Simulated assay, not measured.
Amino acid sequence: MRELKVGIIGAGIWGANHARVFNTLLQTRLVAVCDIAPERANAFKEQSGCAAAYSDFNELIADPEVEAISVATPDFTHAPIILAALKANKHVLCEKPLAMTLEETEEVAKAAAQSSGKLMVDFHNRVNPAIVQLRDAVAAGEIGNAVHGYARLSNTTYVPLEMLSWAAKSSALWFLGSHVVDALRFVLNDEVVRVYSVARSGVLKARGVDTQDVHISTLEFSKGAVITLENSWILSTANPIAYDFKIELVGDKGQINANPSHNGAVTKLTSQGAKFADLLGITPTGPSRIGGFVLEAIAQFVDAVLDEAPLLADAKDGLAVTRVLAAIEQSAAQGTPVRLCF
């Protein structure tokens, strides 16, 4: 059995998820880690058992032991890392978004087409059981033609104020909207052709994070469906979970709703209030297996590299999502609808 040797760039929360997968699968070996903070890189190296730690991503990319690279760094840092890795013909798994400008994303997509390395975007909701159920129901015609819907992926203020030190360099639109726009494309098997969006700011700025509080957007798809999309970073921390994810679709023959976050299958009631548990993202398994859609998506990158399995989401998907998010920002800034060109 061939072994894939992997390096991780970004020694934070999500980098740890990547390490968990690569240290569990029998066909992968984690050989290097990189983080801009040397002490964090070295701590990650010790915890994960890999051989090398770097503070410059170019050094990790140049490491001859590294065949594939996971990019688990902040949203705004992705493009230069991906471009350098693809130039070196390394395989790349990148967290969303692929990049935060249309120009950078187009450059990445062009580089992916020219490189012998594979590029996958970690749009992990494509293997989220709730979202797959939506996709299958729509594809089977259970609700007929999708007419309208509502999608919400928002966070409590804990995320921009406490969890992400770099929140001011991103927004709920880029951090969360990238996931849900791709999920809608996946479920509807369709592309967005026009958007109209309104943004509001002030709550986070007053608390020291200079980014938008919320985008409320209308997405029109080519087959006729109209979806209202909410991406907010100012939900109350009194919520029982830090994220709120819902998709509701109404068709001409039926309706289907998904509520992956607030389904209440497990509710903890303590002195700190009510809290929901996440039962889908990461699930219990034996020591040689991984479970849950968050880890499964990472494992599918390995399948694509070693077994020529289809990529879960490729550069074209990443580019399509960035086009929509950039159009949403443009619409919110100018106060008019924006039509997308493909």
Rank of each mutant, 00 (worst) to 15 (best):
E230W: 00
E142P: 01
D303S: 10
Q334D: 13
A238E: 11
G144M: 11
A265T: 13
G264K: 11
A53H: 02
G141T: 06
T237V: 14
S271C: 10
L188W: 10
T228F: 07
V132M: 02
L249Y: 01
L269E: 15
E106V: 15
N145D: 07
D136P: 07
A167F: 02
T24D: 07
F245A: 11
S48D: 03
S331F: 02
R289H: 13
K118V: 04
D314H: 06
L60Q: 06
D210L: 10
A99G: 09
L280S: 14
A43R: 12
S170P: 01
A299T: 14
S236Q: 00
Q334Y: 00
P337W: 12
V250R: 07
R2Q: 13
L312Q: 06
F301W: 00
I234L: 01
S171K: 01
P240Q: 10
R135Q: 15
A140C: 04
D75V: 05
F57L: 01
V71I: 15
Y54L: 07
V181W: 03
I81N: 05
A11S: 07
T283R: 13
L280A: 14
V203S: 04
H215T: 07
I69V: 08
S232H: 09
V127Q: 09
L319N: 01
V138S: 09
A99T: 01
T336P: 00
W233Q: 08
V198Y: 12
V21H: 14
F245E: 15
V338K: 10
R185C: 14
I290M: 01
T283W: 05
T336R: 15
L204S: 00
R152F: 02
A53W: 06
P129V: 04
I282N: 04
A68K: 06
I13H: 14
E162V: 13
L306N: 05
N231V: 00
E46Y: 11
V294A: 10
L134M: 10
L319Q: 03
A113I: 05
G149A: 06
V193N: 08
S261T: 15
R135I: 12
I8R: 12
P260S: 03
N259D: 13
G149R: 02
L325P: 00
Q114D: 14
D213C: 02
D136E: 13
L173Q: 07
E46L: 06
F57D: 03
S55D: 14
R126Y: 11
A199V: 04
Q300D: 11
L235W: 08
L340S: 11
L279P: 08
Q334E: 13
V203M: 05
I247M: 12
S197C: 09
W166A: 03
H91K: 04
V305H: 09
K5L: 06
P97G: 06
H148V: 05
C94H: 04
H262E: 08
V305N: 12
E296L: 04
D75L: 03
D317Q: 08
E296Y: 08
V250N: 08
P97W: 11
P310N: 12
G149I: 10
D213N: 03
H78I: 12
I82Q: 11
A151C: 15
S271K: 12
P97T: 09
E162T: 15
N189F: 11
Y196K: 13
W233S: 09
